[in-house]
């Protein structure tokens, strides 16, 4: 029995939202990216419904997150929006659905592609081949991104241990 788009959204929204938040560390941006991803899935729903719509949605989401990072870098992170937006954000708690642990600080500083590889590997439990397909890169590049990310995390852990002594 084929699921409808509405059922698909209800079943996957939580998982994909968490993926988006781990990718961008911004709840509002994550929701926006998720909606764009769902819109693209909906446009191709007839074809995707028989296949794996969640994998497609995840691929769109990850690539949107990477592009968003580039776009922000080009814009120079200029603040945009109305005064009401600023007030709403000021009232919102600092950790509004965004993880703020010690490890998150390190993950946040990783380059976006390395972070994406870590999220897909340790949150989505994808294999190297699946990560390569999702990001549109080679397996070798996935390995190198993973190795660099793990080296940065390892260095952080060793620093923490040294500080704890």
């Amino acid at each position: 029995m084929e699921v409808t788009f509405e059922e698909f959204v209800a079943a996957t929204a939580g998982r994909l939202l968490r993926t988006a938040v781990f990718l961008v560390y911004d709840r509002h941006l994550a929701e926006d990216l998720l909606q764009i991803a769902y819109e693209r899935v909906a446009k191709r729903w007839k074809r995707l419904a028989k296949d794996n719509p969640e994998a497609y949605a995840r691929r769109v989401l990850v690539n949107l997150a990477i592009d968003e990072k580039k776009r922000r870098a080009r814009r120079g992170d200029l603040p945009v929006g109305s005064l009401a937006d600023v007030e709403r954000l000021a009232r919102a708690p600092v950790s509004d659905g965004v993880p703020t642990g010690d490890l998150d600080e390190v993950l946040r500083t990783l380059p976006v592609k390395q972070r994406a590889v870590v999220v897909l590997r340790y949150w989505c439990d994808l294999s190297e081949q699946e990560i390569a397909q999702t990001l549109g890169i080679s397996r070798g590049t996935v390995k190198s991104h993973t190795a660099r990310a793990m080296a940065a995390l390892r260095a952080h852990m060793e620093e923490g241990r040294a500080d704890g002594r």
Binding site: F5, E6, V9, A13, Q35, Y38, E39, A42
Partner: peptide, 8 residues
């Protein structure tokens, strides 16, 4: 999200 899908 469901409304977005219906619209698209």
């Amino acid at each position: 999200s469901q409304a977005t899908g219906r619209a698209a």
